[in-house]
């Protein structure tokens, strides 16, 4: 485990050092970015709509019973942008994009394509890791920005049309507007950047350390997804803690 952490940290440092080369790899970054967007946008839409809806469904009746229906919009608004959107989108990214990254790089490792790059004096970090890291670090916050209003809409729809809640759109969004500030959205975006870096690093590292033929690729993909999700949940706690310090 310590060896993996060390290797991931070294890879992170190598990627940061390679950032000035990003212009040279811009085509690959754009290609990766659109690939991530295309494969995830519909899922993000569906997921966010239902997350917003289910928060409303779970909390709405309780709040209405206690005469607190006026806080529903603000509560869903805050929980979507500070917690649910960044965490759920990151988990979705780990499953869809992280797995694809580790499978693609793992397959290149198994079939000696990475060795071929090395013999041509082409660094796998610059050629493979850098474009993917940059693309996912831009794409995840962008998807979170898209996910937040969709989640709000899902929450508003359930709040308005569920008979046990019946909080109208205007009441829902006026409370949301009062409670949610720009810093809350930024809070979620900061989290998503951290999660994106973690998913990218873990997935690329797993891909680059693949061994043992096609079975090894499967193992790498599983490890990449599971480790990414575990790290997202653990880091979520600590990043939230740190962000709360700055909020005070």
């Amino acid at each position: 485990m310590y060896k993996n952490i060390g290797e991931i940290l070294i890879m992170f440092w190598q990627t940061v050092r390679a950032l000035p080369l990003m212009w040279h790899h811009r085509k690959k970054v754009v290609q990766q970015f659109f690939e991530i967007g295309n494969t995830s946008l519909l899922m993000v839409c569906i997921l966010s709509m239902f997350i917003g809806g289910v928060i409303a469904l779970q909390t709405g009746p309780v709040l209405v019973e206690r005469g607190l229906s006026y806080v529903l919009g603000g509560m869903i608004g805050l929980s979507m942008c500070k917690e649910f959107a960044p965490v759920m989108m990151a988990i979705l990214m780990a499953g869809r994009v992280g797995s694809a990254m580790s499978a693609e790089i793992g397959s290149m490792r198994v079939y000696q394509e990475i060795d071929a790059l090395k013999t041509m004096n082409i660094s796998p970090i610059n050629y493979l890791v850098l474009p993917r890291m940059v693309a996912i670090t831009v794409a995840l916050p962008a998807l979170v920005l898209f996910s937040v209003p969709v989640g709000w809409l899902g929450g508003a729809l359930v709040s308005a049309y569920n008979q046990r809640i019946s909080v109208g759109f205007s009441s829902f969004f006026s409370d949301l507007q009062q409670v949610v500030e720009l810093k809350d959205v930024i809070n979620g975006l900061i989290k998503s950047v951290v999660f994106a870096v973690v998913i990218g690093l873990i997935s690329c590292h797993q891909g680059l350390s693949t061994s043992g033929g096609p079975r090894g690729i499967g193992r790498s993909v599983t490890k990449a997804v599971v480790n990414s999700i575990v790290m997202i949940i653990i880091l979520d706690y600590f990043v939230t803690g740190v962000l709360l310090i700055f909020e005070k």
Binding site: Y111, Q112, E113, A116
Partner: peptide, 8 residues
């Protein structure tokens, strides 16, 4: 390389 190792 034995497998040619072309980037697919």
């Amino acid at each position: 390389f034995q497998s040619a190792a072309l980037l697919k």
